[in-house]
Amino acid sequence: MSLLEVKDLKVRVEEREILHGLSLTVNPGQVHAIMGPNGSGKSTLSHVIAGKPGYEVTGGQILFKGEDLLEMDPNERAAKGVFLAFQYPVEIPGVTTWNFLHAALNAQRKARGEDEISSPAFLKKVREVAKSLNIPQDMLKRGVNVGFSGGEKKRNEILQMALFEPAVCILDEMDSGLDIDALRIAADGVNALRSPERAMVVITHYQRLLNYIVPDVVHVMSKGRVVKSGGKELALELEESGYAQFEDAA
């Protein structure tokens, strides 16, 4: 069974249709890249998969391990194993990263009928993951993302991804605002999480990121649809010729 299946998805925001019948099938172990110009609907797709309010699904469906994802609250989707790494992770003053991650992990475990994880066990786990991502301990004591640099915020997203061990990771413009060194650290973190059971959907505007996270499948989105799919060479082709050819095709 495919892990994530988007079928003929139509989405509106405030009376304007953004996605006009988008389909996508992601199997375990695969890394899919979704590329496309600004306004093609890439971020809308990621938001709808994660369950962000404000989007009206007018047609089609999203299945996750065969279950109807659109029927679930965002927190249920997270507990089932859907993870969205945000393009712009929010700052939450007054809620320490440590507390937030512990509460979130336990909420997910509770939703799955698992035992809660104790503070010492959690501490150990977070420390290990933080170390591998070069995240200093004191960052965990600060408010979530408060005062973090762009690179730190993205690393914090990957930290969460590693901690929650989701089945599908949607990475929304992970490269935005990162310099080349920060990008490499973030990409290494993502690559370390690749596994035969886990799938990733990497949304990006630029081919550059795909030098670090090498995809199995590349999709080109334009005007709310997937207009072309292919192997990783499709990304290089795009880098050469640009998106203009597809804008006409759509």
């Binding site: 309010p53 927190n75 989707r77 929010v90 007054g94 809620v95 991650l101 509460a103 408010g143």
Partner: peptide, 20 residues
């Protein structure tokens, strides 16, 4: 939304924000 996307039910997410 960010907090819910990390698995926190709405009331729990609200509680953390209210506490802050």
């Amino acid at each position: 939304f960010y907090m819910r996307a990390r698995g926190l039910p709405e009331k729990e997410a609200q509680a953390l924000l209210i506490q802050a």
